[in-house]
Design a protein around this nucleic acid. Structure first.
Lengths: 121, 121
DNA sequence: ATCGAGTGCAACTCTGAAGTTGCACGTCCA
DNA sequence: TGGACGTGCAACTTCAGAGTTGCACTCGAT
C-alpha cells in the first residue's frame, strides 16, 4: 500500500539525532578494531606502537582509532610529535545500560504475552 | 621486532572458539537490522509481516532475521506455512554484562595509572 | 642545518555485506 | 483440485569499509 496523501502523520521520520550508542556498536563490531581497542586498554600508546603488535599496517590502525574516537571509546592527546591514545570506559557503560534496559522491555512484553496466553486457557 | 624463534609461546592464537557476544555486536551494528529487531520486539510475526512495515524487501528482512537468529536474539517457530519470529532477551543481557565488566577493567587500570602518577609527584 | 622518527593525507584495490529480483516449493482453503 | 499465500533458494548488483602503498609535513635531536 503506497503512502496515500490522507496520512500526513505516517512515520514522520524525524532528523534522527544520531545516537552515540550506535557508534559504539559499530565500533565494537569489527574484530580488528576490538584488537586495537584491547591494545589501547592494555596500555596507552601511539598508533605506531599499537600497530607494531598487530598484523595490520599503521594506517589501518589510525583509521580504526578514528572510529573508536568518534564513538568516544578512546581519546587522543598530542605531545610533541606523538599522539597518545587512551581508553575511555564511559561509552561502554552507557551502551551496556541501554542494552539492559532494552532486554528488560522485551522481558516485560514477553511476560505479558505469556500471562495473557495462560489466562486464555 | 619480528617474532624470533626463541619465543615459541608468543601469542599462541588458539582456534578462537567464536564468542557469541561478537555475533550480538555484529547483529546490532546495522541500522536496518535494529529496525527489524525492534519490529519483532514490538510484537512477534512473520518475515512478510515485518517487511510490510519497513522500506526493504522481504528477502532482506529474512537475511537480517537469519543474522539475528545466529546471535540468539530471535527464535523462529514454524506453524504450518508461517514462520513466527519472537524476540529473546538473554543475549542482550549477557552482552551488557560483558561490556560492563570490560569497562570496570579499564576503570581499574586507569585508576592504577593515575595513582602511580600522583605518587610520582 | 640536517636527518630520523612519527604523523597526516590521498589514491587505490578488494572483499563482503546489504539489497534486489525471479522462480520453485509447500501449505491452507474454497 | 486449483489457486492464493507464504516461504526458501539462487543469481546478481551495488557500495561502504577494511586494508594497503606512497608521499608530504612536522617535530626533536645531533
Amino acid at each position: 500500500m503506497p503512502p496515500g496523501p490522507g496520512a500526513p502523520s505516517d512515520t514522520p521520520q524525524p532528523p534522527a539525532p544520531h545516537d552515540p550508542v550506535d557508534d559504539v556498536l559499530v565500533a565494537l563490531a569489527d574484530p580488528t578494531r576490538r584488537a586495537v581497542l584491547d591494545a589501547v586498554a592494555g596500555g596507552p600508546g601511539s598508533a605506531t606502537a599499537i600497530a607494531a603488535g598487530l598484523p595490520v599496517s599503521r594506517q589501518a590502525v589510525v583509521k580504526h582509532l578514528a572510529v573508536l574516537e568518534r564513538a568516544g571509546l578512546v581519546v587522543a592527546t598530542r605531545t610533541g610529535r606523538e599522539v597518545r591514545y587512551e581508553v575511555r570506559p564511559e561509552p561502554l557503560t552507557t551502551t551496556a545500560r541501554r542494552l539492559t534496559a532494552l532486554a528488560a522491555t522485551w522481558d516485560a512484553r514477553l511476560a505479558t504475552i505469556k500471562r495473557i496466553a495462560e489466562q486464555r486457557d
